[in-house]
Design a protein around this nucleic acid. Structure first.
Lengths: 178, 178
DNA sequence: TATTGTTATACTCTATAACTATA
DNA sequence: TATAGTTATAGAGTATAACAATA
């Protein structure tokens, strides 16, 4: 469906801030910490930068990155079947308590509305407001700008490959837990 | 030097938690939010998982992920030229104040030692202790385990490609700032 | 009793600003 | 005055635990 043929030549140019793993003092360390560990490190470092960039781009919107993600998620459900708090928590892979805080923020910003479910009075459904829809439109370009800033060093096919790899990783079931 | 030829076929299988971008209510939205935005989202989501996994693996070590990164960085300098606080801040891409907290934690755990520089009494050099070296060894396997857990869905060549892409991204200068 | 969301609390990570002690 | 590190403070993001209301 979407085959991408890519030739990477000498990609591993060695990051300036890379930390070689065999520098713990003992020179004769037989465990060179497979590149996987380094890879995880790169991922985390990159994300710190992405977070900073995203935060900066979203500041004029009056919402935080996490609130933005939640807002997009709410919009995804559509007006006829607004999500419950529990739905949002599951999709965001966080505990329900975390969603409460995020919705509080979005409600304060006028982007969403808490609507009690008449069928089950324990349930609260999160509805998008008109303000929320406007914010969402601005959010989209902010997000694109932030992504463009961080992805600048990559060509289009490289981005496509990266997307595929991240997809494969993100789709994997949360294993190893309990 | 390290060319990798890879054929990805139909990688984009569609994440279960993917949020299509054209769901903001207005059906006639001409801005489908280039895949780049989605890519950034995937990256953030993946990192949240990585963070959780790493935290879990590092819990028995008595230090946090950020402290672990700092510990590795300190070790990288070697015993004959221990780094200053400012060096660590630069390498970690954080403000000096953030390093203070991390070093506090590592010092409390007995992993490092603050040593005043005799040549310049403003400077504090961070030295690795014997405990720190031991922790580092345990940290290495914890890190590898965590990485293995999150990278499980990828083959070895895929990991290599991912590493290359992340490297290219992380190496880019922090642009767009001031 | 099980489910849904909440209040209360705490911790990690990071930032800005003002201060201290050097140089 | 400029530099190195700190105290003080804040805020984003997330977690656990205990609880209320409802089913």
């Amino acid at each position: 469906m979407n085959p991408v043929l890519v030739l990477f030549s000498s990609m591993s140019t060695g990051s300036e801030t890379d930390i070689p793993d065999s520098a713990a003092g003992s020179a004769a360390d037989p465990t060179p910490d497979s590149t996987d560990g380094v890879l995880a490190e790169q991922l985390l470092r990159l994300t710190r930068r992405l977070h900073r960039i995203q935060k900066r781009h979203m500041e004029p919107l009056g919402i935080t990155p996490a609130q933005g993600r939640l807002l997009r998620l709410v919009a995804h459900y559509g007006g006829d079947r607004p999500p419950r708090m529990a739905d949002l928590a599951t999709r965001l892979e966080v505990v329900p308590r975390a969603v409460t805080t995020l919705v509080d923020g979005l409600e304060a910003a006028g982007c969403v509305r808490r609507a009690p479910d008449p069928a089950n009075r324990r349930v609260i459904r999160i509805e998008l407001t008109e303000t929320g829809r406007a914010t969402l439109r601005r959010l989209r370009s902010a997000r694109t700008d932030a992504a463009e800033e961080i992805l600048a060093p990559l060509t289009a096919p490289q981005r496509e490959v990266l997307g595929g790899l991240l997809n494969a990783l993100a789709d994997a079931p949360a294993q190893g837990g309990c």
